[in-house]
Amino acid sequence: MKKNKIEVKDLDLFYGDFHALKDVKVGIEEKVITSIIGPSGCGKSTLLRVLNRMNDLVEGIKITGSVKIDGQDVYSPNCDLVALRKQVGMVFQRPNPFPLSIYDNVIYGPRVHGEKDRDRLNALAEESLRSVLLFDELKDHLRDSALTLSLEQQQRLCIARLLAVCPEVILLDEPCSALDPYSTLKIEELLQTLKRDYTILIVTHNMQQAARASDFTFYMLLGEMIEYGETKQVFTSPQDPRTEEYITGRFG
């Protein structure tokens, strides 16, 4: 039994009066891929954004309960937000490379965190681009604008940009929804290799993707956790009839 990397307990979240997450409770092991599934608006993105506190920007938000990563409470007053976001990185639904060069995109994080050494930055850039299998393709174009890349390459670049700050947890919010099926498979393959070093949470609307790419599956409905377990088990013999309805496509 591996130890839990992320431990969420009694989590309630309100957007103003709207109760978006209800008593969510989940423990996530280290170095596995967990997929979060559920119909639109059930709170998947909200849950993901709780983990790196991207929700802090929302006005009128209220969060209670405990969210621990490596035993540290993310919402305790002495949590260092910068350190947290280095530790817990996020990839968004639409690839969002900055309008800078490919190179500047990759080393954006390290630079922001004070790394000035050229050689170190170059090494980080190369290593990160290699991890997402972009380096050989792009090594002669590092000075080109990142916006000239294809969407798949942009999404890989966004992952590389994340790896460059050496996170431990990677959150992906529907990372393939802007990509074609082939690119989607390539990104999934990439996630499988990244799993060796990172704890990965992926929100997806694609049931096949959840089934083939994740170790654990988390099914949500209207802000509540309905089912959580090993993906194989959730997809073959779900405990809750609502889960079955959803994954067989009769709902959502």
Partner: peptide, 27 residues
């Protein structure tokens, strides 16, 4: 400037101020 630039930068651990002068103003 697209909100996604700002989110991307903050999610990498950049501060609001770093985000403003490294991403938003250039964009």
């Amino acid at each position: 400037v697209p909100k996604s630039y700002k989110e991307g930068s903050l999610a990498l651990g950049a501060t609001h101020w770093q985000t403003i002068y490294k991403v938003i103003l250039p964009a």
